[in-house]
Computed example of a mutant assay.
Amino acid sequence: MTVHILKPGMMSSLQDRGRYGHQHLGVSPSGAMDERAHRLAHLLAGNSAAQDLASLEITLQGPSLRFDEPALFVLTGADMNATLDDQAVAVLRPTLARAGQTLNLQAAKPNHGARTYLSIYGGFQVESLLGSQSTHMRVGLGGFEGRALKKGDQIQLAQPLPDDETALNRLQAELDELRIYMPAALALAPRERVRVILDQADLFTDESLALFQSQSYRISPASERMGYRLEGQPLQRKTPKELLSAPTCFGTIQVPNDGQPIVLMADRQTTGGYPRIGQLASVDLAQIAQRLPGQNLGFEVITLEQAHALATRQEQAFTRLNDSLESLRKACAQCMDRA
């Protein structure tokens, strides 16, 4: 009833949508960097939208793992040339692994993203802390022992499929007939300029506001799950006055004294005192999460109303996808009933 980690990859950790409601206590939400890809993997693995189970977030270089029991899994996000016992595994497609099979992921294909998400039907058997299974590696909280996976780890499956050939063959037949219609709003079409709502724009000079919207930034090598540092022509404030610390969000864009913006990511600090030039639209968070250091990034200013409309369209698309996968959930439940 376990998954054995034969090779951990560069950095693989369990992440769900995060632990919210505790920032006032200094607890960062953490969670998946590309929540869109995580949610896709969760639904396509036959899990209910009502329950958020952790997926395995895999960064840049994939792991190798062996299934002790049958499992239904899905890969989303970056394409890492995955194979199951040397047979190619498609992304965005439920795949049935039999007991003893090995899943191998290689390096992410160039220009195909930075992070892959592996979700399993029924999820992994890990404790939920403060309402989340996410790993916050900086403080050793949650997930699998509060850390990234390493060679030799064994992770329990919460609901392993029955090791029954008849039941598994029936499930495979259902998977072969499954047609998945992916709403366009859930695709990650690369954008040269990600959309942002201005925040404390009055603190910056008119020239800097224009520069913020026109230049192309380079993502610094000093970028990680806490924040992405950007390199470009420095932005200037009107006056260097001190500011009170304020709560931060995923996608908050701070500008420290050197004038180089920092986009706060999943493991961000809970408050910050640097000026906030903008807030990334939630639909474009995945755009940054799937970019690599050295790549370029620009910003396009939109209104709050436009950002709300984009987020509503994405949520409606997730609802349509969830509804269309009812037959997959039924097939998985019937397989479990035959155990």
Rank of each mutant, 00 (worst) to 15 (best):
M1D: 13
H4G: 00
P8Q: 07
S13E: 01
R17E: 08
H22F: 14
Q23G: 11
G26R: 06
G26Y: 05
E35I: 06
R36E: 02
H42R: 13
L44Y: 05
G46Q: 03
G46I: 04
D52R: 07
L60P: 00
S64V: 01
R66N: 05
D68T: 12
P70K: 12
T76D: 03
N81F: 05
T83L: 04
V89Y: 04
V89Q: 01
P94F: 06
R98N: 00
G100I: 02
Q101I: 10
G113F: 05
R115D: 11
R115N: 06
T116W: 00
I120W: 01
G123P: 02
F124E: 08
L130I: 12
G140M: 05
E145H: 12
L149V: 10
K150Y: 00
K151T: 15
Q154L: 10
Q154S: 15
Q154T: 14
A158W: 01
P162T: 09
D163P: 05
E165C: 11
E165N: 12
L168T: 07
L168P: 00
M182P: 06
M182D: 08
L188V: 14
P190Y: 09
R191I: 00
V194C: 11
V196T: 14
D199V: 09
F204K: 08
E207R: 14
F212W: 08
Q213T: 13
S216A: 13
A222Y: 01
M226T: 14
K241V: 11
F250N: 10
T252G: 13
D258Q: 10
M265A: 14
A266V: 04
R268S: 08
T271V: 15
G278T: 00
L280M: 15
V283M: 01
Q290E: 05
F299P: 00
F299S: 10
E300K: 14
E300V: 01
Q306M: 07
A307D: 02
E315Y: 07
T319D: 14
T319H: 11
L321H: 04
S324I: 03
E326M: 09
L328D: 06
Q334A: 15
Q334L: 15
C335Q: 03
M336P: 00
